[in-house]
């Protein structure tokens, strides 16, 4: 964050450099954010209208298919949040992009919230459909582990006092998680086939009727835009928090220098 800004003012900037400048990011996101939020709200409201007043009950699931309209977007955004953290971690460790850690830090609680929602709505769907809130099914288990990874990322960050160190260590964990996540997913899939009889109702595939697919897509788009808006807001807060911190440091420094000067004058 520190060395980039001084360089960027003297040399001609590429687009990524300009976006990398936190000041420029604040200007740009300040303009975009209200529009993004309004767009998210509009699409989600339309999606809710479709969900509750237009979409027919599923021939198999009945009205509980309405839970799928928020469950699927939540699960998808839980995964997208992790992808965002991974890309940001890569950006921090490899390119030392000044906004990368801001992005990774802002994405973690939002991604965790959506993952949690995927788990909650999933079990609320499971109770009437499978007769139980929780099944040790492959997909449920791997989403649960994803949730643990989010918790680990946030816990690791909060337990290191040095912010620069915390950023890099969290990024290392984020990237290690990317390598290991497919292995976990694959192992859990395998494990499920050994132990669970194929009782799982399958979503996806060509079985979805357009009358149900359409509201699902609208909701997915709406929640994705909401995710982006929340993420942008989180990043803005984080940039501000770092400015406050830098100003506080400057204040302490000034005070120290002032005291030094006064003791030099008196002694």
């Amino acid at each position: 964050m520190k060395p980039m800004s001084t360089d960027a003012q003297t040399t001609p900037q590429s687009l990524t450099q300009r976006l990398a400048n936190p000041t420029r990011f604040m200007e740009l996101s300040g303009v975009i954010l209200p529009w993004l939020s309004a767009l998210a709200a509009g699409i989600i409201l339309y999606g809710l209208y479709l969900t509750f007043f237009v979409a027919p009950p599923d021939y198999q699931q009945g009205e509980t298919v309405k839970i799928m309209f928020i469950h699927v977007p939540s699960a998808w955004l839980g995964m997208m949040g992790y992808a965002m953290i991974a890309i940001s971690s890569f950006g921090l460790l490899v390119f030392r992009h000044p906004l990368a850690d801001v992005s990774a830090k802002a994405a973690a609680p939002i991604g965790a919230a959506f993952t949690l929602l995927a788990l909650i709505t999933g079990s609320l769907w499971g109770k009437p459909m499978w007769g139980t809130y929780w099944v040790w099914d492959a997909r449920l288990t791997s989403v649960l582990i994803l949730f643990f990874l989010y918790l680990g990322l946030m816990a690791l960050r909060s337990s290191l006092d040095d912010e620069a160190l915390a950023a890099k260590q969290t990024a290392v964990l984020g990237l290690a998680g990317v390598v290991i996540l497919p292995i976990i997913k694959f192992s859990v899939d395998w494990w499920n086939t050994l132990h669970q009889p194929a009782s799982v109702v399958k979503m996806g595939g060509p079985a979805i009727h357009p009358s149900i697919l359409y509201p699902l897509i609208i909701n997915a788009v709406g929640f994705s835009i909401l995710f982006l808006a929340l993420h942008m807001k989180g990043m803005r807060n984080e940039v501000l928090r770092r400015r406050v911190k830098a100003l506080r440091m400057a204040e302490v420094e000034q005070a120290a220098r002032g005291r030094e000067a006064s003791t030099a004058a008196s002694g």
Binding site: T121, L124, W125, G234
Partner: peptide, 26 residues
Amino acid sequence: LGPHAAFIWASYGAVAFVLVVLLVWL
């Protein structure tokens, strides 16, 4: 919403609650 209305409302309630908490906090 049929016999499972409570589950549907609970799901939407949970989503609304978590998202509102997130929004208010931000």
